[in-house]
């Protein structure tokens, strides 16, 4: 049991125990009192299950019926700070590394899945990409030669099924609600709150912050502004601002 959970480690449980019992009783719940979002069971080829599956009994058949599998017996618990398209990409990167290269669906298909997920998490995706992603994932599952390729699209398919809205947000609204996909993040300075001290500009490694010619009422210095093109989304500015003027959108 791993992930954003209070008690991580190796556990032995009887068949039939529910996900809820494992996560909240043995695992001690989600770290920092945050909200449970998903649990990936079965290793990289397994699927991501959601809150609605929490009362699923853990056995071979029930996990498959829910869209995941027993697999290696591993469980990775995720909270609202995890971005599901990014999680799918993470697992696909692993599969690409592991593919032997013998059959074309796994050799080329997983690479293309990974590239499409990258496009989506970079904010360059389209709704057609989502359709193509689902079709390709299904074809790889249907045609790959061995167990690796036949299960490698599971993280994609299960997140598409269970977190469709999150994919749509990445593609249509160009937003990552978990704040994980850096290319979708925007650091902004509230010009009314900014006192113009310039500390953020000094700390910015990309020299992305400059002074405007607007001085907010009650302040003596003109406010600062972030050039999104130059911004590396490193977060150095936020940490340095004592006035809470900088936020991530």
């Amino acid at each position: 049991m791993a992930g954003q959970i209070n008690n991580v480690g190796l556990i032995e449980v009887p068949m039939g125990i529910t996900l809820r019992e494992i996560i909240y009783e043995i695992g001690g719940g989600i770290k920092g009192g945050r909200q449970f979002k998903a649990v990936q069971t079965g290793g990289p080829s397994g699927g991501c299950l959601t809150a609605k599956h929490l009362d699923t009994a853990i056995d071979y058949d029930s996990l498959v019926a829910a869209g995941s599998m027993m697999g290696s017996g591993g469980m990775v618990v995720m909270d609202e700070t995890s971005c599901m398209p990014a999680i799918a990409k993470f697992y696909l990167e692993f599969t690409c590394e592991e593919s032997c290269g013998k059959c074309s669906p796994c050799r080329i298909g997983n690479k293309r899945l990974c590239e499409m997920l990258e496009k989506i998490t970079d904010g360059r995706g389209t709704m057609e990409d989502l359709q193509e992603l689902r079709n390709l994932a299904a074809v790889i599952k249907d045609t790959a030669l061995c167990g690796l390729g036949q299960t490698s699209p599971n993280p994609v398919l299960s997140t598409l099924d269970n977190f469709w809205d999150e994919y749509v947000e990445h593609v249509v609204d160009k937003k990552c609600r978990a704040g994980v996909c850096k290319k979708l993040m925007r650091y902004e300075i509230d010009r009314e709150k900014c006192i113009g001290c310039g500390k953020c500009a000094k700390g910015c490694p990309a020299e992305a912050i400059t002074r405007t010619d607007y001085t907010a009422p009650g302040h003596k210095l003109a406010s600062m502004v972030i050039d999104s093109e130059k911004c590396l989304k490193c977060g150095a500015c936020i940490g340095g601002c004592k006035f809470g003027a900088i936020s991530v959108k």
Partner: peptide, 17 residues
């Protein structure tokens, strides 16, 4: 339909590399 779609997708993949 399932076979034709899979077969075409596989050849499209091969052509993509």
């Amino acid at each position: 339909a399932r076979v034709i779609n899979a077969r075409k997708t596989v050849v499209e993949l091969i052509l993509s590399d």
